[in-house]
Nucleic acid binder design. Structure first.
Lengths: 138, 138
DNA sequence: AATTTATTTAGTATTGTGCTAATTATGAAT
DNA sequence: ATTCATAATTAGCACAATACTAAATAAATT
């Protein structure tokens, strides 16, 4: 599995923003990224460069593309997020809070540690936000 | 309830170390703290001063004492920790990993958000480590 | 081609975390 | 009570992460 834990929270947020855009027509531009993260473009570029050093993306002339590793990280984090969030909401936590809290650990946990949770939760297809939980397991 | 979220992870770790010692006979010395946190004494002192600025402890001549607010924070974090950890272990996560993961959020969540969890978990008296979960609720 | 918009570079700042070396204070032993 | 050892504190430094502005360069649009 992926070797998470080598990301900071902001790097994680950045990766998620990029990954979430990935389905769209055109590659993400730096300016879009800086807007969605609410930071100035030099700050965004700094983040992008750090993720590039970690081989999670490539960027040229403002176009940002995830590498295979980047996509894999992104999907794993998203999946972790949804499972953790589902668990917390299942146990009575407010959705907004569960989401914020999950953001602080979804990029720290490796997927296998969470796989049992997924099963015990009844392999939910959707997270509380209604988005589909992609399945890489089996 | 307590106004958490104003702590960094290291400040949290520091507060926990101090709180865990609190039951002992003598106040914690700086040198003990630095040993238990695996940092040099000037670094430990720096942490102590920051927690002091946040009114969570007082220190004089190397003796460190939690304030009322500090104790309250400490207990709340410990309780949050145990509940989160219990939930994760209940859902199949390895205890060690659940503990490490919980450490990253126990100081960020306010207690009320977690109270439902406590109830749904059947108001467990002990966490997976076997320590008693103190009850401030009711 | 001129203008607007976007990217990048350069330089600066703050916060958190950590260190070493030196100084001061405290406590114990002779 | 003076010396010795231990602990606490100060001062100074360093680095990574995060963020900014202003200026320079590149790209795209009119």
């Amino acid at each position: 599995m992926n070797d998470l834990k080598e990301l900071t929270k902001k790097e994680r947020d950045c990766l998620i923003s990029i990954g979430q855009h990935d389905s769209e027509k055109f590659p993400l531009r730096l300016i879009d990224l800086s807007e969605s993260l609410n930071i100035r473009s030099p700050t965004a570029l700094n983040l992008v460069k750090r993720l590039e050093n970690k081989k999670l993306l490539t960027h040229m002339k403002g176009m940002i593309l995830l590498t295979g590793k980047g996509k894999s990280f992104y999907h794993e984090i998203e999946e972790n997020h949804r499972i953790l969030e589902t668990l917390m909401v299942e146990y009575g936590m407010d959705l907004g809070k569960a989401c914020l809290l999950s953001e602080n650990i979804d990029y720290l946990v490796d997927h296998r540690s969470i796989d049992n949770m997924f099963v015990k939760l009844g392999k939910p297809i959707k997270c509380p936000h209604g988005r589909i939980i992609e399945q890489f397991h089996d």
